[in-house]
Structures are given as C-alpha cells and as structure tokens.
Computed example of a mutant assay.
Amino acid sequence: MKRIRIPGLFFMLAAIMLVTACGKPAQSGESGQAGQSGQTGKTTEYLLATGGTGGTYYPLGGAIANVWNESIDGMNVTVQSTGASVENMRLLGNKETELAISINSIADDAFNGKDKFTAPIQNIRAIGVVYPEVVQIVTAKDSPIQSIKDLKGKRVSIGPAGSGTAVAAEQILGVFGMSPGDFQSFQDTFTDAADKLKDRNLDAAFAILSVPAANIADIATSKDVRILPIEGPELEELTKKHPFYTPYPIPASTYKGQEREVPTVTMQAVMYGREDLPEEVVYQLTKAMYEKQSEIAKGYAIGSQIDLQKALDGVTVPLHPGAEKFYKEKGMK
C-alpha cells in the first residue's frame, strides 16, 4: 500500500485548527418548532413564538425581531407562527422557544397554574408590555346581530384552540349567560374568519387585536362592519371576575360603517422570555425594543404603540433580571 506523507507545516496547521474548534464547543440550545435555538459560537439563535399569520403578534413580532437582529451584535431571532398566548406559554415551559408574546392574563394563569394550565409554568419571566390588546367582536353592519346575546343560534368564530382569544371569548360569553354550545362554534384564525365574514359563511367573529386592525379594515372594504359592545352590568361582572380587563372605547369611524364609539375591553400584550436566558442578552433585547420603537413601527405600524411609560402596566409575572436592569436605569424600578 502506498503511503502518503503529510508535510510537517500542513500537519501543524491542521492540529491547531482542530484544537481551536474543540476548545470552543457550540452551546446548543433546546430544539424549537422552527429549528435549533440557543447560543452557537458568537451568534445567539433564539425563537420568538407569536401567533397566527393573520393576527397582530406575527407581523409585529417580525418587526421587533428584525430590529433586534440589526441592532444587537450576534443576535438572530427567528419568528414562529403559533396558536398564540396559551400555546406560547406552554412552549416556554417546555423550553421549545426562548421568547414569546402573550396576553398578560394568560401568562398570569400559566405562572400560577390556573384555568387552562393544570400545573404552574414558573420558568417564564416578563420583559415588558408591547401594546394594548383590544377585544373586537365583529359582524356585518347589515346583520340582525346587535348585541352579544344576539349570537345565540348564529355561526361564530371564537378564535383558535390554545389562543387567548378563545379564552377571552369564553369569559365574555359567560358573563352574558352564554356558552359555545348556544351557537355554531368555529375556531378559525382571524384571517380565515375574516374571509368567511366577507363571503357570508360566518355571522360573527371574536378577535383580540390592535386598533385599528388590518383584517377588520379589510372586511370593511367589501361590507360595512359592526363591532359589538361590551358594556353595562356584564362589563362590571367581567372586570370583577377577571381584573386584567379594563374598559376601552374604540373611536367612532375607526372602521368603515362604524359610526359611533364602541365600548369594549382591553388587556396587555406582553413580551416574555425564559428564566434561564442570560441577563445581558435580555437587557439588550429590552433596551432595543423600547429605545428603537420608531424603527419597529417602520416595519409594522402597530409598533408605534410600544411605549416605555406603559412597559410595566398589568405585568404580574416576575421580571427577568435583564429587563429589570434596564428599567432601573430608566428610574422605573
């Protein structure tokens, strides 16, 4: 057998490269739905769990991730579409994502093991409020549906399974003396629900979105819309049972056909992260999200609602130390 001689210099270089590679092993993270996450070399690979592609979480999460990736050295955040709040909390709990957006009430339930969560998920930490979540129950203006009680016997989408919308729909219907069994219930994403409303294959749909919501505005291009009010003694009962809800008036003319101000309720969409994320990394994420809000808004207009002065409103889950460090610098803690 012919033997091949390797020149001494080449052998030394190869050995040095091997030792260097072995001396800096990649720190693999947990496997998420959209791929591998964690820290690898000088690049920090994170997943951000959002919501359906037709909602607010997904495009807003994408705009935030783009700003993070552009402004933080070595940061690469990938956005994943999910069933939203309930699923996102479970993904954090299972270490299948590093970051997630959720309604504050759902995160509180997850942390304390209430309602949809049979056991506490206590590895979640708050980063800060992103924007107000507004409950909007949409029907066509020419529909006979004038109030929530008129949904009885109708075709209604209450939001995807595992979403904060579905939880809110159940809670709101409950104070009005109704349940999904009182009507033909669908669990569509709001993108699908909007298409069905336009085609008259659905009578009404629950949504928790920013105001104005692009999908509702899109429905209004083909037919005038009506937003059902949440008011009166039912509103009082709702806020007493579920104090995360606060009254919110949708201004008149927000949507085509909506001539009057509509009373409804809001909660807060909050950015959360895993407890085990490095303090300095979360500090940088928090700092960029609030100090580069105008750049986020260029990517998605709702980013304009990110407001440092409201960053801690309705936040009940403990803050991540990295976020807390930022707020202390700003004199907020």
Score class of each variant (00 low, 15 high):
Gln122Tyr: 05
Ala166Gln: 13
Gln122Ala: 11
Gly38Met: 00
Phe190Asn: 10
Glu259Ile: 11
Met267Ile: 05
Asp150Trp: 06
Asn201Glu: 12
Gly164Asn: 06
Gly113Trp: 10
Tyr248Leu: 10
Phe11Ser: 15
Ile121Phe: 05
Asn94Gln: 10
Asn66Arg: 13
Ala323Phe: 08
Gly181Asn: 15
Ala207Ser: 14
Ile208Met: 11
Gly153Ile: 03
Phe10Thr: 15
Glu291Ile: 01
Asp115Met: 13
Met178His: 07
Lys149Tyr: 04
Thr20Pro: 00
Pro25Phe: 03
Gln136Pro: 00
Gln171His: 09
Gln305Arg: 12
Gly51Lys: 05
Ile219Phe: 05
Ala110Gly: 02
Asp307His: 02
Pro7Asp: 14
Leu197Trp: 01
Ala15Ser: 14
Thr40Phe: 12
Leu47Pro: 03
Gly181Ala: 12
Glu45Phe: 13
Val79Ala: 02
Glu237Lys: 11
Ala323Trp: 04
Ser31Asp: 11
Met332Arg: 07
Thr189Gln: 07
Ala100Ile: 03
Phe111His: 14
Pro249Asn: 12
Leu238Gln: 00
Gly159Val: 07
Glu87Met: 04
Ile127Val: 15
Pro25His: 03
Thr20Phe: 12
Ala297Pro: 01
Val134Gly: 03
Phe244Cys: 09
Gln184Leu: 13
Lys287Val: 00
Asn112Ala: 08
Gln27Thr: 15
Glu259Gly: 10
Ile72His: 07
Ile219Asn: 02
Tyr46Gln: 10
Ala126Tyr: 03
Arg274Val: 04
Ala63His: 01
Leu238Lys: 00
Asp313Tyr: 11
Leu202Ala: 05
Ile137Asn: 02
Thr264Pro: 06
Gly52Thr: 09
Gln171Ala: 08
Thr191His: 14
Leu173Glu: 01
Thr221Glu: 14
Asn215Ala: 12
Gly331Cys: 08
Ser157Arg: 08
Ile16Glu: 01
Val86Ala: 03
Ser37Cys: 09
Asp313Leu: 12
Gly61Tyr: 02
Pro321Glu: 04
Glu329Val: 00
Gly299Asp: 01
Ala220Phe: 07
Tyr58Trp: 12
Leu9Val: 11
Lys95Tyr: 13
Ile4Val: 14
Ala217Val: 07
Pro243Tyr: 04
Ile64Arg: 02
Pro263Arg: 07
Val19Leu: 15
Glu275Met: 11
Met17Glu: 14
Val262Gln: 02
Gly128Thr: 06
Val135Leu: 15
Ile103Gln: 06
Asp142Gly: 07
Thr44Ile: 10
